[in-house]
Simulated assay, not measured.
Amino acid sequence: MRMLAIASFAVLAATSVQAAPAAGAGGLAAHRAVYDLSLKEASERSGISGMVGRMVYEFGGSACEGYTVSFRFVTEISTGEDSRLTDQQTTTFEDIRKGIFRFVTRSFVDQKLDHEVRGSAEVKGDGLSVALERPDKLALDISMAHFPTEHMIELIDKARDGERFYESRIYDGSDAGDKAMITTTILGEKQKAGKNDPEAKRAGELADDAYWPVSMSYFEENAEGDGLPVYSIAFKLYENGVTRDLTMDYGDFVLEGQLAQLDMYEPQPCVEQ
Rank of each mutant, 00 (worst) to 15 (best):
A7S: 15
A10R: 03
A10C: 14
V11L: 11
L12M: 08
A13L: 06
A14W: 00
T15Q: 10
P21E: 03
P21L: 00
A23H: 02
A25I: 05
G27N: 00
G27H: 05
R32V: 11
A33L: 07
V34C: 11
Y35D: 00
L37Q: 09
S38L: 03
L39S: 05
E44V: 08
E44I: 02
R45A: 09
S46A: 04
R54Q: 15
Y57T: 06
F59M: 08
G60L: 09
S70H: 14
S70V: 15
S78E: 15
E81G: 10
S83D: 13
L85N: 03
T90M: 15
F93A: 06
E94L: 13
G99S: 04
V104K: 15
R106W: 07
R106K: 14
F108E: 10
D110F: 05
D110L: 11
Q111M: 02
Q111C: 01
D114P: 08
S120V: 01
D126W: 09
D126Q: 09
G127E: 11
L132R: 12
E133L: 14
R134M: 12
L138E: 13
A139H: 10
L140I: 14
L140D: 11
D141C: 07
M144L: 14
E150V: 04
M152C: 07
I153F: 04
K158R: 15
R160I: 06
G162C: 02
R169E: 08
I170M: 13
G173K: 03
S174G: 07
D175W: 14
A176Q: 12
D178N: 06
A180R: 12
I182D: 01
T183L: 14
T183A: 03
T183E: 09
T185D: 01
G188H: 03
A193V: 02
K195G: 00
D197E: 01
A200F: 03
A200T: 07
A203I: 01
D208S: 14
D209W: 05
Y211A: 01
P213M: 09
Y218C: 07
N222I: 00
A223N: 07
G225S: 07
V230Q: 03
K236G: 06
L237R: 03
L237Q: 04
T247N: 03
T247E: 15
D252C: 10
V254F: 08
E256W: 13
L259S: 05
L262C: 11
D263M: 09
Q268R: 12
P269H: 09
